[in-house]
Amino acid sequence: MSASSKSPWIVHYNCNSCNGCDIEFVACLTPMYDVERFGILHVGNPKHADILVVTGSVNHRDVRVLRNVYAQMPEPKVVVALGVCTSSGGIFADCYNIFGDVSKVIPVDVYVPACPPRPEAMIDGIVQALGILERKRAGEVMPSAAKPVLTLRPTAAAEAAPAAAQAAEQGNA
């Protein structure tokens, strides 16, 4: 790992989020998770940032802002999309004001699905992004990330699993 991936500075853009992801993301800075030990800094300005963290579904106003913020980041740069909304619009997908998911506006390198993702998952996503950042710096053209598979309604198997766990728990009690 070279210096680039040891000093990832993050700019965070909240598109149309319910703030759940944002609260969890900010929690990463707390002593509990302390992302600064990886050299991660949370900057407010795209011009200083390496990683753009996006939360929430994109509404019509966000489109130009997201483009501008992305354009103002110096290369090499990666985009990490947190939460379900960024990949599909989430529960807001069909709202009148929603444009769509983040990849319709800027290329996304890492998706961290969940609603909201746990801080550990977010950190994991950032670490994945570091690898991509490193390869981008080396001049590789990285393809955009595949969107996570959406599970709109739990399947029978998924429904069964928690039920079984619940039963086991009750049994233990």
Partner: peptide, 12 residues
């Protein structure tokens, strides 16, 4: 060249 940072609301 990039525009000055205006919270992303620059007019392209």
């Amino acid at each position: 060249v990039r525009e000055p940072f205006l919270c992303g609301e620059n007019i392209q």
